[in-house]
Simulated scan of single mutants.
Amino acid sequence: MTRRLGPGSLVIATHNAGKLKEISALLEPHGLKCLSAGSLGLPEPAETGTTFVQNALLKAHAAAQASGIVALADDSGLAVEALDGRPGVYTADWAERQWFEGSAGRDWFMAMGKVEGMLQERGPEVSRAAAFHCVLALAWPEGESAVYEGRVAGSLAWPPRGTLGFGYDPVFVPAGMEQTFAELDPAEKHRISHRADAFAKLVAEQFA
Rank of each mutant, 00 (worst) to 15 (best):
A208E: 12
A73G: 00
T48M: 03
A208D: 14
E47L: 03
E47P: 08
T50M: 11
D84W: 04
L78C: 04
G102I: 04
R151I: 06
G18M: 12
L5K: 01
V126F: 04
M177R: 15
V11I: 13
E28P: 02
G143A: 04
I69R: 13
M118F: 12
P7E: 07
P141F: 09
P141W: 08
R86P: 01
P174F: 09
R86M: 15
L164S: 12
L184W: 02
A153T: 13
E183Q: 15
D74V: 10
L156I: 10
P174N: 11
A95K: 13
Q65K: 15
P7T: 05
S127M: 09
A73Q: 05
S145K: 06
V70Q: 03
G102N: 06
G41S: 07
R3A: 13
L10Q: 07
G154R: 00
V11H: 04
F172E: 05
Q179I: 02
P160N: 02
G77A: 06
E183K: 08
E44K: 11
C134E: 04
K189T: 04
A37M: 07
R128L: 14
Q179G: 07
L20Q: 04
D197V: 11
L20W: 00
A187H: 14
L20G: 00
H30T: 00
P7I: 02
E142K: 08
I23K: 09
G77P: 02
E142Q: 13
V89L: 01
T163N: 14
H61T: 12
V80G: 00
A157S: 15
P159K: 03
A111S: 15
V89W: 00
L20V: 08
R161K: 15
E183N: 12
S103A: 15
V126P: 04
A175H: 05
E22P: 03
A204K: 13
K201F: 03
S36E: 03
D197E: 15
I12K: 09
V89N: 00
A13H: 08
H30W: 13
L202N: 01
G88Q: 01
G77C: 12
T163R: 14
Q179V: 10
A153G: 11
M118I: 10
E47D: 10
I192N: 10
D197R: 05
E149A: 13
P29W: 03
P186K: 05
R151W: 01
A139T: 12
P159Y: 01
A175E: 15
A200I: 09
A208I: 12
S24I: 01
L40P: 06
T163A: 14
A62F: 12
R128F: 08
G117Y: 10
L42D: 02
A92G: 09
G123D: 08
A17K: 11
E96K: 14
L78Q: 02
E81Q: 13
L35S: 05
G41K: 08
L184M: 14
D75E: 08
G117E: 14
E44F: 14
T14A: 01
G105V: 05
T91E: 04
M110W: 10
Q206V: 08
A182G: 10
L164H: 14
G105F: 08
